[in-house]
Deep mutational scan, measured.
Amino acid sequence: MIINNLKLIREKKKISQSELAALLESSRQTINGIEKNKYNPSLQLALKIAYYLNTPLEDIFQWQ
């Protein structure tokens, strides 16, 4: 199971779900699903999230 700190990191950087979704060329619903652990992002999307949040991938997503 993958757990994530996306919501915590996103809020700390003062970025809304909609703003992050626009940067990622994704939907706000996708970001919401990832944050609620209802959806696991593809590797490509996970890497883009890490890039746009300027945060190491392993700080956002962790195996448990």
Rank of each mutant, 00 (worst) to 15 (best):
N5T: 03
I31N: 02
L45S: 01
L20P: 00
K12G: 11
K38D: 11
I2W: 10
L57D: 00
N4L: 11
K38I: 14
I9G: 01
N32V: 13
L8T: 15
I49M: 06
I9T: 04
I49S: 00
L47D: 05
T55P: 04
Y52W: 10
I60C: 03
N54E: 15
G33Y: 14
L24M: 09
E58K: 12
R28V: 15
N4Q: 03
L6R: 01
I34W: 03
Q17A: 07
L45I: 08
Q64R: 12
A22F: 12
I15G: 05
S27A: 05
S27I: 07
E35M: 04
N4T: 04
M1D: 03
L20Y: 02
K14R: 11
Q64Y: 10
R28P: 15
A46G: 08
R28D: 11
D59M: 10
K48D: 06
K48G: 06
Y52C: 13
L47M: 13
F61L: 02
K48R: 12
E19M: 11
M1A: 07
L45V: 06
L20C: 04
Y39S: 07
Q64G: 13
N32H: 11
A46I: 05
R28E: 15
N54A: 12
I9E: 04
Q44I: 10
W63G: 02
K12I: 10
R10F: 07
I3S: 08
E11R: 08
N5L: 06
L23V: 11
S18H: 10
G33T: 08
K12A: 14
N37I: 02
N54L: 06
N37V: 01
I34S: 02
W63Y: 06
R28L: 14
A22V: 12
G33P: 01
Y51V: 07
K13V: 08
I2S: 08
N32L: 09
Q17F: 03
T30G: 02
T30V: 15
T55S: 08
S27M: 04
L45P: 00
Y51R: 09
K13T: 06
S42G: 09
L20W: 03
E19V: 09
Q17C: 06
K36I: 11
N40Y: 12
Y39A: 09
R28G: 08
L47T: 11
D59N: 09
A50D: 03
L45C: 12
L20I: 02
A50I: 04
R28I: 15
S16F: 04
E58V: 09
T55F: 05
K13Y: 09
A50K: 01
L43M: 14
L6P: 00
P41G: 06
E58P: 10
Q29L: 10
Q62L: 08
K13N: 12
E19K: 13
R10A: 03
L47A: 10
L57W: 04
P56R: 09
W63R: 03
L53Q: 00
N5A: 07
I9M: 07
I60D: 00
E25S: 13
L20K: 00
I49N: 00
W63K: 03
L8A: 14
Q44L: 09
L23A: 15
S26R: 10
E11T: 10
A21N: 01
S18G: 13
E25W: 05
N37F: 07
L45K: 00
I3Q: 10
I9R: 04
S16T: 13
Q17N: 04
P41Q: 02
R28Q: 14
M1Q: 05
E19S: 11
S18K: 13
P41Y: 01
I3C: 12
I15M: 15
N32E: 15
T30Y: 15
L8H: 13
L6D: 02
Y51F: 14
A46M: 09
I2G: 04
L24K: 00
G33I: 08
E11M: 11
L57E: 01
Y39P: 01
K12S: 14
P56N: 09
W63C: 08
L57F: 05
L53C: 04
